[in-house]
Design a protein around this nucleic acid. Structure first.
Lengths: 156, 156
DNA sequence: GCTCATTGTTACCTATACTCACAATGAACT
DNA sequence: AGTTCATTGTGAGTATAGGTAACAATGAGC
């Protein structure tokens, strides 16, 4: 904590950078005609990630926690993805309260297109960095992500 | 470019991280009763930065370029800041088209409160990093910011 | 003086995420 | 049984941040 003066500008840079990344991502998704928004893209990848790690499709609440948003925000995203046929709401036989979100064939296809768009956006932003620098950045981000996982609906 | 597979996750982490930063920033601004939004905060600091480097107050177009948004977006932000008395629209005597944005005393006061909020938000997010790691991160972000400055209203 | 580029704005739309309130359901404890 | 309480998802409404398109006013060049 000997040089706290650097944190403000550092935060600025992070925010500006991510604004660019978000815009590039959105642009790529439009360009390639994937037909989804960045937030929907994030949900789809979270969905895929959950399937790989748990086997069963996630509940709305699972997605909300993973995405670090309130459950209500997930509803809107799933609504849009369901309308465009990328996901499917499936009632859970074990509990009639929960809804499982399944990936459709169309959704799987979108996922692979989406990965290309995301990689292109990342590439556009990260272009100035060498592989080594990217590795270092990745390590730092890992450290940051592990540290401060405070969800918005914390009850403190 | 030997490990492009890492870029996708890297982009994810960057976006998630900045979502946290943005939320923390907003939270801090509310907590301390500064009475402005994160985007307004960014505009105020850009304004201050311009004054330090140019002496004269910036035009709307200058702010738009610096903030990397379309001029229309600046209008809304300045509207809000003018209503709350943080800035002042001043017609330029040299050209009746341009409007100079000046900082009021209230705005200067907000700027110092704002800096505290921003530092606190950055500190909350960057807590897991040592000073040395922050320096490294700062260097990487510098490299990234210099590289890809493509404004949204590019005419390509 | 006519044409054209610049500057900011009015009007409208989209995306994201929030709060609050609520209905349906499950669980737990009389 | 039934009553109370927590969980789960959603409807309604709001705020923030940004974008496009059209336009009026102005300045500049021919």
């Amino acid at each position: 904590m000997s040089s706290p003066d650097a944190d403000g500008p550092l935060a600025d840079q992070l925010l500006s950078l991510t604004r660019r990344l978000h815009r590039s991502h959105k642009h790529q998704l439009e360009e390639r005609g994937v037909g989804i928004t960045p937030a929907q893209s994030r949900l789809l990848r979270t969905l895929s990630h959950h399937l790989q790690h748990h086997g069963s499709p996630p509940r709305m609440a699972d997605l909300a926690e993973r995405l670090e948003v309130v459950p209500r925000a997930v509803t809107t995203l799933v609504d849009a993805l369901e309308v465009s046929g990328k996901v499917r709401r499936v009632p859970d036989p074990a509990s009639r309260r929960v809804i499982r979100i399944e990936l459709t064939d169309d959704g799987r296809k979108a996922l692979s297109e989406l990965r290309g768009a995301r990689r292109a956006a990342a590439e556009e932003i990260l272009a100035p960095l060498t592989d080594e620098q990217r590795t270092v950045l990745g390590g730092l981000l890992d450290t940051l992500m592990d540290g401060g996982g405070a969800p918005p609906d914390r009850r403190c």
